[in-house]
């Protein structure tokens, strides 16, 4: 059985009247990519900051690598890499110097450090920008530099707090692939984001957070199984009477029917032939269809059903 890398129990953090983290617990097993998914203000970053002993918290216990985490646990910090939401580098240092500086905080051996710095820069694809200052880099390249600074010392636990905010699609894909490679190389990763597609793409396990609480936890498939929606069918129609809407609601597995702006949206429970059943009904009643879409549930549906609101509200 793989060891637990991070263990958080009943974490509570208040900012005066605001309860930012509400009895939050989690366990991360070695080799996992754990996604913390939640809208802005849901408590993801606060949880991370408590985890790193940067923030005081009101209640709870945090263990990293099986030992209680505190600001003085330099032995634990040695194996942690942090990639923050904002690009946290020195504007006065070049790409190479920045990576070398942060790597130097962990690795004292000069020769070993040189290799690690070059490896990290190569990993994020900044070889052609070694002497560039951060202000001369594009948003995507700056993010890559931010990542290189956090991973150069080869940490066992990497904490990434929304590393792809305001990044172009090309850089985003590169970053996501990089994260998977780091994981394959043995790093355990905590990845916070409010982009469900990213979390779905790379995370082996996901925790959905809102208002500081752990609302649901599991793999993507497990989370999708937790909700009622098994399939969402959308059909373009010119018109549909109330009688037909009521009839469609009576079809097998259907639990929600909405007709708005010439678009019929039907949500069904898990079951086979939902689409065929619906199309047969429309055909039998001579209702002409436009385009037809059938979608399996997404994390957004999961979030919507659990919290009653869209993830990007």
């Amino acid at each position: 059985m793989k060891p637990t890398v991070v263990k958080v129990e009943n974490l509570v953090k208040r900012y005066k009247e605001l309860l930012a983290v509400d009895h939050f617990s989690l366990n991360i097993i070695e080799g996992e990519i754990l996604g913390l998914l939640g809208p802005n203000g849901s408590g993801k970053t606060t949880t991370i900051n408590c985890l790193l002993s940067l923030l005081q918290y009101d209640k709870g216990a945090i263990e990293i690598f099986g030992k209680p985490m505190s600001p003085d646990r330099y032995d634990l910090k040695q194996d942690i890499g942090i990639i923050s939401q904002n690009v946290a580098v020195f504007e006065e240092l070049t790409v190479y110097e920045n990576v070398d500086y942060f790597c130097g905080l962990y690795i004292k051996d000069k020769l070993k450090r040189k290799d690690l710095v070059n490896e990290a820069i190569g990993f994020v694809g900044l070889n052609d920008y070694l002497k560039f200052y951060p202000s001369k880099l594009s948003g995507g390249l700056s993010r890559r530099l931010n990542i290189a600074c956090g991973i150069a010392h080869k940490p066992k636990l990497i904490i990434m707090d929304e590393p792809t905010v305001a990044v172009d699609p090309q850089s985003r894909n590169r970053i996501l692939k990089g994260i998977q490679t780091l994981n394959q190389n043995g790093a355990t990763i905590i990845y916070t984001s409010h982009y469900m597609e990213e979390v779905e793409q790379i995370c082996s396990r996901i925790i959905i957070m809102d208002k500081g609480r752990n609302l649901a936890e599991g793999t993507t498939e497990e989370l999708k199984l937790m909700i009622k929606t098994g399939e969402t069918i959308r059909i373009e129609l010119l018109d549909l009477s109330k009688e037909h809407i009521e009839n469609i609601k009576m079809l097998k597995h259907v639990f929600s029917v909405v007709f708005e702006d010439s678009l019929l949206t039907v949500r069904c429970r898990r079951g086979s032939h939902n689409l065929v059943t619906l199309l047969n009904y429309l055909h039998e009643h001579d209702i002409n269809c436009g385009r037809v879409f059938s979608e399996l549930p997404t994390l957004n549906d999961v979030f919507l059903e659990i919290t009653g609101k869209q993830l990007r509200d």
Partner: peptide, 20 residues
């Protein structure tokens, strides 16, 4: 400013390093 975690992200990154 670059050494107080509540003042900048850069400081936060430095504060989680294993240097006193």
């Amino acid at each position: 400013v670059n050494i107080q975690a509540n003042m900048s992200s850069l400081a936060a990154r430095r504060c989680v390093s294993p240097v006193k």
